[in-house]
């Protein structure tokens, strides 16, 4: 019997003796790694209960995650105020969906309006004041904080990134030099050092008496670093755009800003959207670094929860749960970025 007549799976896995050996070895390794993990996470796991004593089977104690779920999501945000976090999330989500599905001619205006209204609204809902009970940023934490830092840092990073990408392409030599220095400086230093730097230097260089919130410092620091990476992503789009586009716009009598805003940027940003999404993924992953200035995002809450004497030895459960959430967010975003890229190629 020739190997071509075998069913596809046998041909793929056992087509030749060498493939067969590789298959068997890999299957053993897979079984050796995967079976204990599956037994621990699913078969021998404990799902119901309220305390550590309920975890009697040998596997994972998911009871711990259930008991701590609120903290993993909201940190120490007051329980009776958590609806504000949910509301903020829903408003942001609905607005983004609304903008994406809005008719083409309204999209730009709706987007700009959202950009003006949403960020202050979000801060008001979360931090309180003006009629709402104030909640200090010290009490924020968990997944909510991860998302907050990611979104607000990119609100700094994307505009700055576009400005410096344009600056780097500029004909004006001084502006080009300043842009290159800015981009290469922030790309050359570790993010962890920038977060330290922001938390130490920002209070120092502002006039005495102006206090600046700990969380705001971290958001600003991250925003500046990601801006440099965003600038490189945007530059990719600017360089991919045929130079005839700007030349044609200039020939039609548009000045630099009109040509940039109406012709160059809309096309260049569409090209660089996948790259910018990848930078956003990197940002989501790097928000974890705020741990070093004792701000507890999702990973920080997971780490802090290990110190609870009532739940000793829950390391694996805490890591598995927080890791899975990061993975889901980043995986979904990376698939989206890949989808955008393949759509552009067609």
């Amino acid at each position: 019997m020739s190997s071509a007549s075998l069913p596809l799976w046998r041909q793929r896995l056992f087509g030749t003796p060498a493939t067969g050996i590789v298959t068997v070895v890999l299957a053993f390794v897979l079984a050796w790694v995967a079976i204990p993990i599956i037994r621990w996470a699913l078969i021998d796991a404990n799902w119901v209960g309220t305390t550590r004593a309920d975890c009697t089977a040998g596997g994972a104690c998911w009871v711990f995650i259930r008991a701590r779920f609120g903290q993993f999501m909201y940190g120490l945000y007051p329980v009776d105020q958590r609806w504000r976090v949910d509301l903020t999330g829903i408003i942001f989500l609905v607005s983004v969906l609304g903008i994406v599905f809005a008719p083409q001619r309204l999209r730009l205006r709706a987007g700009l309006a959202a950009l003006v209204v949403l960020p202050p609204l979000g801060i008001w809902l979360l931090a309180g004041g003006f009629g709402l009970r104030p909640v200090e940023t010290r009490e924020w934490g968990g997944l909510m904080l991860t998302l907050f830092i990611s979104v607000y840092s990119s609100l700094i990073a994307i505009p700055l990134g576009i400005i410096f990408a344009l600056g780097r392409q500029s004909q004006l030599r001084v502006i080009r030099l300043i842009s290159i220095l800015f981009i290469e400086f922030w790309r050359g230093v570790p993010i962890i050092a920038v977060i330290f730097l922001a938390s130490l230097l920002l209070p120092l260089i502002l006039p005495g008496g102006i206090g600046i919130d700990r969380l705001a410092r971290a958001v600003i620091g991250l925003g500046f670093v990601i801006a440099a990476y965003m600038a490189e992503a945007v530059r990719g789009g600017l360089q991919a755009l045929p130079s005839g586009q700007r030349e044609a716009a200039t020939a039609l009598g548009l000045n630099y800003w009109k040509a940039t805003g109406l012709i160059v940027l809309p096309q260049a940003l569409r090209i660089s959207l996948p790259a910018m999404t990848n930078e956003f993924i990197a940002l989501v992953k790097n928000t974890t670094l705020v741990l070093v200035v004792s701000i507890l995002d999702l990973l920080g809450i997971a780490q802090a929860s290990l110190a609870d004497p009532a739940w000793v030895g829950m390391n694996m459960e805490a890591y598995a749960f927080s890791g899975a959430i990061y993975w889901l967010i980043c995986f979904a975003l990376s698939r989206w970025s890949r989808h955008l890229e393949s759509r552009r190629r067609l």
Partner: peptide, 11 residues
């Protein structure tokens, strides 16, 4: 690729 490096360090 889809998990933060700090996660691996702590893990």
């Amino acid at each position: 690729r889809n998990i933060p490096l700090l996660f691996f360090v702590l893990f």
